[in-house]
Design a binder for these strands. Sequence first.
DNA 1: TAAAAGCCGACGATATTTGTCGGCTTTAGT
DNA 2: ACTAAAGCCGACAAATATCGTCGGCTTTTA
Lengths: 134, 134
Amino acid sequence: MLKISTKSQYGLRALVYLAISKEKINSLRTISKKEGISFDYLEKILSRLEKTGLVKARKGVLGGYFLAKHPKKIKISEILKVLEGDTFLVKCIGADKKFHCIRARKCLAKNLWRKIQDSINSTLNSITLADLIK
Amino acid sequence: MLKISTKSQYGLRALVYLAISKEKINSLRTISKKEGISFDYLEKILSRLEKTGLVKARKGVLGGYFLAKHPKKIKISEILKVLEGDTFLVKCIGADKKFHCIRARKCLAKNLWRKIQDSINSTLNSITLADLIK
DNA sequence: TAAAAGCCGACGATATTTGTCGGCTTTAGT
DNA sequence: ACTAAAGCCGACAAATATCGTCGGCTTTTA
């Protein structure tokens, strides 16, 4: 249906929150409350962002999350890749060749998907978290 | 997950088929066989395209489907709109204002979604069925 | 009047998305 | 050392969307 999952929307909002926050570190509870996002769900999202090195976490009392890099260094494409998986519009142009269809040569639609894909990618690659918050 | 549904993929392939076919009219059965798409599913897709005036149908023996307009007059955006519904990346920028979130003013993410949306739209609006087949 | 074709609504299977829950580990403050 | 606050992790469950099937109907041509 060509839509951005709420997972990505939530994730991005959390990152924006961290980026503009005056605090050096923000707990999951705080972010979820301020952004109105389910605590448990956001936990999974941030945990994933943590594993892929976009945010860092500190455990224990006074713990929380903070950005791993300067917002300038975080491209939107990175974020979405982590949260949405390898975002290819259609499998037949994706990385996994087993989905590349047999009628590849004849398939005139393929070029279209590729074009749209490119246009999305270039937008995503050209914008950073820092661009969003200024 | 930011993907094009197979419904749209099938629909587009069917339209391309009609556009490049030497026959003036092609039955559902023929298209589904040649394109390797489920007969019953494709029926629903073409029926929808028919209702919205992109293709026309003739009933009875020797019946089938044919394009309602010249491929030059059919923009890809039209096709996808019919098949995917109102394709907005996120509800909060969609037509239905009840989904526009409360934190609209604060929401820095919104501009991003809009930017991506615009880039997709302009690609989709600038390409016609005719462009695909030449 | 029979066969081929499209029309239509209901249904069901599957996949994906969106959460929820419970118990674990780590850490700061007392 | 103990406790409470916080993150970590895997299993599960609910909701939704996608994909496809089915049966019976109408229309049309030979």
